[in-house]
Write a protein that binds this DNA or RNA. Structure first.
Lengths: 219, 219
DNA sequence: GGATATTTAGAACATTTGTACTATTTTTCT
DNA sequence: AGAAAAATAGTACAAATGTTCTAAATATCC
């Protein structure tokens, strides 16, 4: 069966290449890692690697698509009716953890976008969607009384942009300045991003915020 | 006189190389621009260029030092006694404009830091100084009654980190997502950064904030 | 004005890198 | 088992890149 051989559990060379490339890109950056590096790390010839991925860009693009798909899979689970502050904070922490798995994409952000225009355009489009989603979430939170209603529209817009700027670049900043333990990195920066909303929370909102972090620290 | 020939008005090749490199790095990134590109743009041989800067790193490092010196020159003008919200906002907008002049440094942030460890270490050290300065400014603002005093210490720490993360990476984000006019870019993102403090301002603070932007938009 | 130092141009070099090509081995399918 | 397809290894190649070297030109200084 053809469909069986296209399972997501394919343990073939292609998958190994992608996984090895991801790790090496994360460690040393896209520019520094060559097809030969990747092949050598796996223990195959670079000729073989180029048989599976004739262009280095193909590798990058495939990995890019995976993180995007992962993100939208997370969002797809949401239902507008059970949107809450706790859910938004959960999504924040989840997406930070996922992104970190592909951190090279954001660490080499501009270079990659300049190099692969398709990614650039795709990213720009996704950004507008994300903005709308977050804007919707903010309005919902105001309806639920967890977010203050007296926020100037301009500041609400800023909040949104601050949120995505942090989301896109905490990995770069951490690469140089983070001093704590590696496994706590996504949590550390997700906390900072969550802090963007904090001053705009109502008393009820602050209570939910506190409860969320109590449970996060417990479990 | 030796000191005369070391003037800052040196109109010699070295200066031209630095200026041309800065512009090209800003436009196309550090990795894409070679010594040959720079030499060709000026109209000199790349052999000549390598006579003045035997290593490409030297060019980057010299430009890095300039932006750092420019920043600390701005800070040196401050006196603790005339510290105010307006001054902080002014400094914010000034430093955003200055940084943008050397945007390649932040756009290629991680690559450059990985490539030139001296810059990395210098940057890390400067970061701790900047943090202390900003923390001091926040306390002063609380004393003056423009910043609320009931801010949880953790959130104050987040505010600080949010501020520097935005300050370091707005140039990268803008490279892909900014749609407005080029000359308004630094202003646009400085506004967003200023918005970080907004929700923590007192009534008096918000008034000063509003007045500051009124005058900025006038003059 | 002539010696000395600085600056410049251009060739040369070694290395790297992405990609293409060829031949061989392995797998798949009937 | 045997033909066809896929995968693999290794070589080859062209372009680019940082850097070095050499010789000529220019400026500087006594």
């Amino acid at each position: 069966m053809k469909s069986a051989s296209q399972d997501n559990t394919k343990n073939n060379t292609k998958e190994t290449i992608l996984e090895t490339a991801r790790v090496l890109f994360n460690q040393h950056g896209v520019e520094s890692i060559t097809v030969r590096h990747i092949a050598q790390e796996i223990g195959i010839s670079h000729g073989n690697l180029c048989y599976h991925f004739p262009r280095k860009e193909n590798i990058i693009f495939t990995l890019y698509r995976r993180v995007v798909e992962g993100m939208s899979a997370q969002v797809a689970l949401w239902k507008p009716e059970d949107l809450s502050l706790a859910l938004i904070l959960t999504a924040l922490h989840q997406s930070y953890a996922l992104q970190y798995h592909y951190k090279f994409l954001m660490v080499d952000f501009v270079n990659i976008m300049r190099r692969i225009p398709e990614i650039r355009e795709d990213f720009r489009q996704i950004f507008t969607v994300r903005k709308e989603q977050f804007a919707f979430a903010l309005v919902m939170m105001q309806h639920q009384g967890v977010l203050r209603k007296d926020i100037p529209p301009k500041q609400l817009e800023y909040l949104l942009l601050q949120n995505y700027l942090l989301g896109d670049f905490w990995m770069s900043e951490s690469e140089i300045l983070y001093d704590g333990e590696e496994q706590h990195k996504p949590r550390f920066y997700a906390d900072i991003a969550a802090g963007l909303m904090f001053p705009y929370l109502t008393a009820k909102g602050r209570k939910e915020y506190a409860r969320f972090y109590e449970e996060l620290d417990k479990g």
